[in-house]
Amino acid sequence: MLITYLIFGVFGLVVAASALGMLLSRNAVYSALFLVLNFATVAVLYLILGAPFIALVQITVYAGSIMVLFLFVIMLLGAEKMPPGEPLRGHRWLAIVFGLVFLAELVLFLIYRGGMQAVVNAPSLEFGSPAAVGMMLFQKYTLPFEVTGFILVVATVGAILFTRGEGFKSRKRTLGITSGDKAE
């Protein structure tokens, strides 16, 4: 059992450190890379918790595609760095104080309300396997699954529409100029 604790300890530290790294790094590219690391380590925790399917989805979808998308956007906009500083007076101070208070509250909750004795048992191999998840997904959760598919399509269309808006206009403008030229 010690090895499990050891794995959890190491990866837990990496999770915490990468999260803080994302928060603190000046460069947005570093932030994104820290986040990729964070997601990957969380995926390992998922494996410990007997969720191999979710762990793989986490790596492919989050660490793979979403974060790649982030990196692309960062580089596309050239927004890696921003000038430091805090324009809102007292904001940073307040945010830090409240964040600490919030953390303290949650920790207190854990200490006084949590069950330290409750232990996660090692789940059976079938639990969380892609086959089991797939069976449940396509039997009990068919409708939500379809709905998520629909949401993704809508999101895709929306994203295309947003980014292509300017292109439409400029194309129209070009057409207008050419027709104007013809008229002259």
Partner: peptide, 25 residues
């Protein structure tokens, strides 16, 4: 095995760091 509270604590940490990121960055 590992107590559930460890996972909850880790989750809390990630959550607070996330909030701090929203508020500060």
């Amino acid at each position: 095995m590992i107590p559930i509270d460890y996972f909850v604590g880790l989750s809390v940490l990630m959550f607070v760091v996330g909030i701090a990121g929203v508020l500060l960055r």
